[in-house]
């Protein structure tokens, strides 16, 4: 029961700590403008990197904004890691396999939960069942196999590259090795636990036990679950939580593109924030 509960706690902490980080960055003071073009929300102009500032008297004209274009570029970055693809293809292959693997593993986990609930509802998930349980059965196998293979391959390759690439090695701290080792450990322990049953029926059963708080783990499962829980709590407090930071770097900094015009949100924030004086002072003579 404790193990089942701790898994829930780890999941909640993952969500809570990620949200806390997002709130922390979201509440930071208004920063100076630091856009870099192309900015995708610039309708049509974004194709060559242009902006509203190409327009004479831009402040007196409605800005041509395309949210669709911004979302499209955001998805390209989220789903395909476009910048890495364009600028460092050799690293992209392994990084992309790893990140795609994570998405597939998330899908696998959701399918396991859905399968476990289906099982608990008395509908057996197997290859001979009706459409829904059969679909769950096959998709779970597919996502589980593909997910474990490419995520593990990606994570191990990232670790090996960091160990053997003389440039990356120079800049990698022990903590950054630890991050990758933790991920590999979770994945390898998962492979040890789940590989005896590649239909993932056992995994579905243990998920059902977790839902009903009745897991009875063996040593391998215990180690895997504990590692998974450590990872879930650790990710948001480490740089592996960059999924939070990336939203701010792109949407609130590089693509912000919000001039301070009368009546704008920026103007309102500026008015509010200039009421507070900084408590810290610089010491150079010309700053006195």
């Amino acid at each position: 029961m404790i193990l089942g509960l701790s898994a829930y706690v780890a999941l909640l902490l993952f969500i809570g700590l990620s949200a806390r980080k997002a709130i922390y960055y979201g509440r930071m003071p208004l920063h100076g403008r630091m856009e870099l073009y192309p900015v995708p929300q610039e309708k049509e102009r974004h194709t060559y990197g242009g902006s509203y500032m190409e327009e004479p008297e831009w402040w007196s004209k409605p800005r041509q904004i395309s949210k669709a274009s911004e979302i499209k570029d955001m998805l390209k970055e989220m789903l395909f890691i476009k910048k890495l693809f364009q600028n460092q293809r050799s690293l992209w292959w392994i990084s992309y396999l790893f990140h795609l693997g994570i998405y597939i593993m998330i899908a696998w986990t959701i399918l396991l939960v859905a399968g476990a609930i289906t099982d608990l509802a008395g509908i057996s998930v197997n290859s001979h069942a009706s459409v829904w349980p059969a679909l769950l059965y096959y998709l779970t196998i597919f996502t589980g196999l593909v997910g474990f293979i490419i995520t593990t391959f990606g994570a191990a390759s990232l670790l090996l590259r960091r160990i053997f690439d003389p440039i990356l090695k120079k800049y990698t701290t022990p903590q950054e090795y630890f991050n990758l080792i933790l991920l590999v450990a979770v994945l390898v322990s998962g492979i040890i636990v789940w590989s005896p049953d590649l239909t993932f029926g056992t995994a579905r059963q243990i998920t059902a036990d977790a839902i009903t708080l009745s897991i009875v783990p063996n040593t391998a499962l215990l180690i895997h679950l504990l590692l998974w829980e450590v990872m879930m709590v650790y990710i948001p407090i480490s740089k592996m939580g960059h999924y939070v930071g990336k939203y701010f770097t792109f949407h609130k900094i590089l693509w912000e593109n919000e001039p301070n015009v009368a009546g704008s949100n920026i103007e309102n924030r500026l008015k509010a924030e200039t009421r507070t004086r900084p408590t810290t002072k610089w010491s150079a003579p010309h700053m006195q």
């Binding site: 910048k83 890495l84 600028n87 460092q88 930071g245 770097t249 900094i253």
Partner: peptide
């Protein structure tokens, strides 16, 4: 990293915290 530097605090902290040292920037 204090309120003396509010105008750049968010971008600075993000760049400070999240660099993966992937080295993509060097060739640029």
């Amino acid at each position: 990293f204090s309120d003396a530097n509010n105008g750049v605090l968010q971008p600075l902290k993000l760049s400070f915290e999240y660099c993966a040292k992937c080295n993509t920037c060097s060739d640029a």
